[in-house]
Protein backbone atom coordinates (compact mmCIF):
# COMPACT_ATOMS: atom_id res chain seq x y z
CA UNK A 1 0.00 0.00 0.00
CA UNK A 2 2.85 2.37 0.88
CA UNK A 3 4.43 1.61 -2.45
CA UNK A 4 1.30 2.66 -4.28
CA UNK A 5 0.60 5.73 -2.14
CA UNK A 6 4.14 7.10 -2.54
CA UNK A 7 4.10 6.70 -6.27
CA UNK A 8 0.47 7.62 -6.77
CA UNK A 9 1.22 10.96 -8.56
CA UNK A 10 3.33 9.17 -11.19
CA UNK A 11 0.62 6.57 -11.75
CA UNK A 12 -2.00 9.31 -11.93
CA UNK A 13 -0.01 11.05 -14.68
CA UNK A 14 0.13 7.77 -16.56
CA UNK A 15 -3.57 7.17 -16.05
CA UNK A 16 -4.30 10.66 -17.43
CA UNK A 17 -2.35 9.89 -20.61
CA UNK A 18 -4.17 6.56 -20.93
CA UNK A 19 -7.50 8.35 -20.48
CA UNK A 20 -6.55 11.03 -23.02
CA UNK A 21 -5.62 8.43 -25.64
CA UNK A 22 -8.81 6.51 -24.84
CA UNK A 23 -11.08 9.55 -25.11
CA UNK A 24 -9.48 10.91 -28.30
CA UNK A 25 -9.33 7.44 -29.86
CA UNK A 26 -12.97 6.79 -28.97
CA UNK A 27 -14.00 10.15 -30.42
CA UNK A 28 -12.27 9.37 -33.71
CA UNK A 29 -13.66 5.82 -33.70
CA UNK A 30 -17.17 7.12 -33.00
CA UNK A 31 -17.15 9.63 -35.88
CA UNK A 32 -15.72 7.04 -38.29
CA UNK A 33 -18.18 4.39 -37.11
CA UNK A 34 -21.16 6.70 -37.59
CA UNK A 35 -20.12 8.01 -41.01
CA UNK A 36 -18.96 4.67 -42.43
CA UNK A 37 -21.85 2.81 -40.80
CA UNK A 38 -24.44 5.11 -42.35
CA UNK A 39 -22.68 5.00 -45.73
CA UNK A 40 -22.90 1.20 -45.45
CA UNK A 41 -26.70 1.37 -45.34
CA UNK A 42 -27.00 3.40 -48.55
CA UNK A 43 -28.38 1.88 -51.71
CA UNK A 44 -25.55 3.12 -53.92
CA UNK A 45 -23.25 0.09 -54.48
CA UNK A 46 -20.11 2.24 -54.85
CA UNK A 47 -20.71 3.90 -51.48
CA UNK A 48 -21.34 0.53 -49.86
CA UNK A 49 -18.15 -0.87 -51.38
CA UNK A 50 -16.12 1.97 -49.86
CA UNK A 51 -17.61 1.21 -46.44
CA UNK A 52 -16.91 -2.51 -46.79
CA UNK A 53 -13.29 -1.96 -47.82
CA UNK A 54 -12.70 0.32 -44.82
CA UNK A 55 -14.24 -2.07 -42.30
CA UNK A 56 -12.56 -5.21 -43.65
CA UNK A 57 -9.16 -3.56 -43.98
CA UNK A 58 -9.01 -1.93 -40.55
CA UNK A 59 -10.70 -4.76 -38.71
CA UNK A 60 -8.37 -7.29 -40.28
CA UNK A 61 -5.11 -5.61 -39.27
CA UNK A 62 -4.01 -5.68 -35.64
CA UNK A 63 -3.96 -2.31 -33.86
CA UNK A 64 -0.30 -2.80 -33.00
CA UNK A 65 0.63 -3.30 -36.66
CA UNK A 66 -1.28 -0.12 -37.58
CA UNK A 67 0.46 1.76 -34.79
CA UNK A 68 3.93 0.74 -35.90
CA UNK A 69 3.03 1.51 -39.46
CA UNK A 70 1.96 5.04 -38.56
CA UNK A 71 4.86 5.59 -36.20
CA UNK A 72 7.71 4.14 -38.26
CA UNK A 73 6.65 3.60 -41.87
CA UNK A 74 4.69 6.81 -42.51
CA UNK A 75 7.66 9.12 -41.74
CA UNK A 76 9.65 7.21 -44.37
CA UNK A 77 7.20 7.64 -47.22
CA UNK A 78 5.81 11.07 -46.39
CA UNK A 79 7.55 14.20 -45.15
CA UNK A 80 5.39 14.07 -42.00
CA UNK A 81 6.50 12.69 -38.68
CA UNK A 82 3.50 11.88 -36.51
CA UNK A 83 3.85 12.48 -32.80
CA UNK A 84 3.71 9.12 -30.97
CA UNK A 85 0.50 10.07 -29.20
CA UNK A 86 -1.18 11.10 -32.44
CA UNK A 87 -0.07 7.87 -34.11
CA UNK A 88 -1.63 5.99 -31.18
CA UNK A 89 -4.94 7.83 -31.40
CA UNK A 90 -5.02 7.33 -35.16
CA UNK A 91 -4.26 3.59 -35.01
CA UNK A 92 -6.75 2.89 -32.21
CA UNK A 93 -9.45 5.12 -33.70
CA UNK A 94 -9.20 3.61 -37.18
CA UNK A 95 -9.14 0.06 -35.83
CA UNK A 96 -12.02 0.36 -33.38
CA UNK A 97 -13.93 2.61 -35.78
CA UNK A 98 -14.05 -0.30 -38.22
CA UNK A 99 -15.66 -2.54 -35.58
CA UNK A 100 -18.05 0.29 -34.70
CA UNK A 101 -19.08 0.85 -38.31
CA UNK A 102 -20.31 -2.73 -38.50
CA UNK A 103 -22.32 -2.20 -35.32
CA UNK A 104 -23.90 1.02 -36.64
CA UNK A 105 -24.75 -0.55 -39.99
CA UNK A 106 -26.32 -3.61 -38.37
CA UNK A 107 -28.29 -1.52 -35.87
CA UNK A 108 -29.76 0.75 -38.54
CA UNK A 109 -30.67 -2.23 -40.71
CA UNK A 110 -32.32 -3.88 -37.70
CA UNK A 111 -34.88 -1.07 -37.29
CA UNK A 112 -38.19 -2.56 -38.48
CA UNK A 113 -38.82 -2.00 -42.17
CA UNK A 114 -42.24 -0.49 -41.49
CA UNK A 115 -40.53 2.51 -39.87
CA UNK A 116 -38.78 3.36 -43.13
CA UNK A 117 -41.99 2.77 -45.08
CA UNK A 118 -43.85 5.13 -42.75
CA UNK A 119 -41.29 7.88 -43.33
CA UNK A 120 -41.65 7.42 -47.07
CA UNK A 121 -45.44 7.61 -46.75
CA UNK A 122 -44.98 10.87 -44.81
CA UNK A 123 -42.70 12.19 -47.54
CA UNK A 124 -39.78 12.75 -45.17
CA UNK A 125 -36.40 13.58 -46.63
CA UNK A 126 -33.55 11.07 -46.20
CA UNK A 127 -31.87 13.29 -43.60
CA UNK A 128 -34.99 13.67 -41.48
CA UNK A 129 -35.73 9.95 -41.72
CA UNK A 130 -32.22 9.11 -40.46
CA UNK A 131 -32.05 11.75 -37.75
CA UNK A 132 -35.60 11.60 -36.39
CA UNK A 133 -36.69 8.01 -36.91
CA UNK A 134 -33.95 5.47 -37.65
CA UNK A 135 -30.99 6.71 -35.60
CA UNK A 136 -32.81 7.19 -32.26
CA UNK A 137 -34.03 3.60 -32.43
CA UNK A 138 -30.73 2.19 -33.68
CA UNK A 139 -28.85 4.21 -31.04
CA UNK A 140 -30.34 2.24 -28.14
CA UNK A 141 -29.23 -0.95 -29.83
CA UNK A 142 -25.70 0.24 -30.59
CA UNK A 143 -24.86 1.46 -27.11
CA UNK A 144 -24.18 -1.87 -25.33
CA UNK A 145 -21.72 -2.90 -28.05
CA UNK A 146 -20.18 0.59 -28.07
CA UNK A 147 -19.57 0.12 -24.34
CA UNK A 148 -17.62 -3.07 -25.07
CA UNK A 149 -15.64 -1.38 -27.80
CA UNK A 150 -14.63 1.52 -25.55
CA UNK A 151 -13.33 -0.93 -22.95
CA UNK A 152 -11.43 -2.77 -25.69
CA UNK A 153 -9.97 0.51 -26.92
CA UNK A 154 -8.93 1.50 -23.40
CA UNK A 155 -7.19 -1.84 -22.92
CA UNK A 156 -5.58 -1.68 -26.35
CA UNK A 157 -4.26 1.82 -25.56
CA UNK A 158 -1.53 0.07 -23.55
CA UNK A 159 0.28 -0.46 -26.87
CA UNK A 160 1.27 3.22 -27.03
CA UNK A 161 3.80 2.44 -24.29
CA UNK A 162 5.71 0.50 -26.97
CA UNK A 163 6.35 3.71 -28.92
CA UNK A 164 7.41 5.63 -25.80
CA UNK A 165 4.22 7.39 -24.80
CA UNK A 166 4.26 7.75 -20.98
CA UNK A 167 0.95 5.99 -20.32
CA UNK A 168 0.03 3.79 -17.39
CA UNK A 169 1.86 0.74 -18.77
CA UNK A 170 4.97 2.80 -19.43
CA UNK A 171 4.91 4.21 -15.87
CA UNK A 172 4.55 0.68 -14.50
CA UNK A 173 7.54 -0.48 -16.57
CA UNK A 174 9.68 2.38 -15.28
CA UNK A 175 8.62 1.71 -11.70
CA UNK A 176 9.61 -1.90 -12.06
CA UNK A 177 13.02 -0.95 -13.38
CA UNK A 178 13.74 1.62 -10.68
CA UNK A 179 12.35 -0.32 -7.71
CA UNK A 180 12.57 -3.97 -8.76
CA UNK A 181 9.10 -4.56 -7.26
CA UNK A 182 7.50 -6.37 -10.18
CA UNK A 183 4.28 -7.39 -8.48
CA UNK A 184 3.59 -3.98 -6.97
CA UNK A 185 4.61 -2.00 -10.06
CA UNK A 186 2.42 -3.89 -12.51
CA UNK A 187 -0.24 -4.71 -9.92
CA UNK A 188 -0.87 -1.02 -9.22
CA UNK A 189 -1.20 -0.30 -12.94
CA UNK A 190 -3.67 -3.16 -13.40
CA UNK A 191 -5.78 -1.95 -10.49
CA UNK A 192 -5.94 1.48 -12.12
CA UNK A 193 -6.88 0.00 -15.49
CA UNK A 194 -9.58 -1.97 -13.71
CA UNK A 195 -10.86 1.22 -12.04
CA UNK A 196 -10.95 3.11 -15.35
CA UNK A 197 -12.84 0.22 -16.93
CA UNK A 198 -15.46 0.24 -14.16
CA UNK A 199 -15.85 3.99 -14.58
CA UNK A 200 -16.41 3.61 -18.32
CA UNK A 201 -18.89 0.77 -17.73
CA UNK A 202 -21.00 2.87 -15.35
CA UNK A 203 -20.88 5.82 -17.77
CA UNK A 204 -22.02 3.69 -20.71
CA UNK A 205 -24.85 2.16 -18.67
CA UNK A 206 -26.11 5.62 -17.80
CA UNK A 207 -26.18 6.48 -21.51
CA UNK A 208 -27.96 3.21 -22.29
CA UNK A 209 -30.59 3.89 -19.67
CA UNK A 210 -31.20 7.35 -21.08
CA UNK A 211 -31.49 6.06 -24.63
CA UNK A 212 -33.97 3.38 -23.59
CA UNK A 213 -35.99 5.85 -21.55
CA UNK A 214 -36.27 8.23 -24.50
CA UNK A 215 -37.81 5.38 -26.46
CA UNK A 216 -40.14 4.60 -23.56
CA UNK A 217 -38.54 1.21 -22.97
CA UNK A 218 -37.30 1.48 -19.38
CA UNK A 219 -38.62 2.56 -15.98
CA UNK A 220 -38.32 6.30 -15.43
CA UNK A 221 -36.15 5.98 -12.32
CA UNK A 222 -32.76 4.32 -12.21
CA UNK A 223 -30.81 5.05 -9.06
CA UNK A 224 -27.37 3.82 -8.14
CA UNK A 225 -28.32 0.21 -7.56
CA UNK A 226 -29.63 -0.18 -11.08
CA UNK A 227 -26.21 0.75 -12.44
CA UNK A 228 -24.88 -2.54 -11.17
CA UNK A 229 -27.26 -4.46 -13.38
CA UNK A 230 -27.10 -4.35 -17.17
CA UNK A 231 -30.12 -2.39 -18.45
CA UNK A 232 -30.92 -4.54 -21.48
CA UNK A 233 -31.39 -8.20 -20.52
CA UNK A 234 -28.78 -10.46 -22.03
CA UNK A 235 -26.25 -7.70 -22.69
CA UNK A 236 -23.26 -6.98 -20.58
CA UNK A 237 -20.76 -4.21 -20.99
CA UNK A 238 -17.23 -5.49 -21.45
CA UNK A 239 -17.98 -8.89 -22.91
CA UNK A 240 -17.57 -8.94 -26.65
CA UNK A 241 -15.23 -7.42 -29.16
Amino acid sequence: MDFFLNRFPAYLDGALITLTVTVLGSALAFVLAMVVGIVGTLRNPAARAVATVYTEAFRGVAALVLLFWFAYAVPQITPYELSPMFAGVLALGLNVGAYGAEVVRAAINAVPRAQTEATIALNMSWGRRMWLVLLPQAWAQMLPTFGNLIIELMKASAIVSLINVADLTDVAGNMRQTTGETVLAYGSAMVMYFAIAQLLIVGMRTLERRANRRLGRAPARGGLRDLLRPPTPGTKVGTAK
Binding site: I151, K155, A158, R176, M190, Y193, F194, A197
Partner: peptide
Protein backbone atom coordinates in the same frame (compact mmCIF):
# COMPACT_ATOMS: atom_id res chain seq x y z
CA UNK B 1 -10.27 -8.40 -13.40
CA UNK B 2 -8.38 -10.31 -16.07
CA UNK B 3 -10.92 -9.28 -18.69
CA UNK B 4 -10.85 -5.56 -17.95
CA UNK B 5 -7.08 -5.09 -17.75
CA UNK B 6 -4.80 -4.94 -20.82
CA UNK B 7 -3.35 -8.22 -22.00
CA UNK B 8 -0.10 -6.38 -22.76
CA UNK B 9 0.36 -5.50 -19.08
CA UNK B 10 -0.48 -9.06 -18.08
CA UNK B 11 2.14 -10.34 -20.52
CA UNK B 12 4.84 -7.99 -19.21
CA UNK B 13 3.88 -8.84 -15.64
CA UNK B 14 4.13 -12.61 -16.03
CA UNK B 15 7.23 -12.28 -18.21
CA UNK B 16 8.97 -10.27 -15.48
Amino acid sequence: FIRTTPVLVQLLFVFA
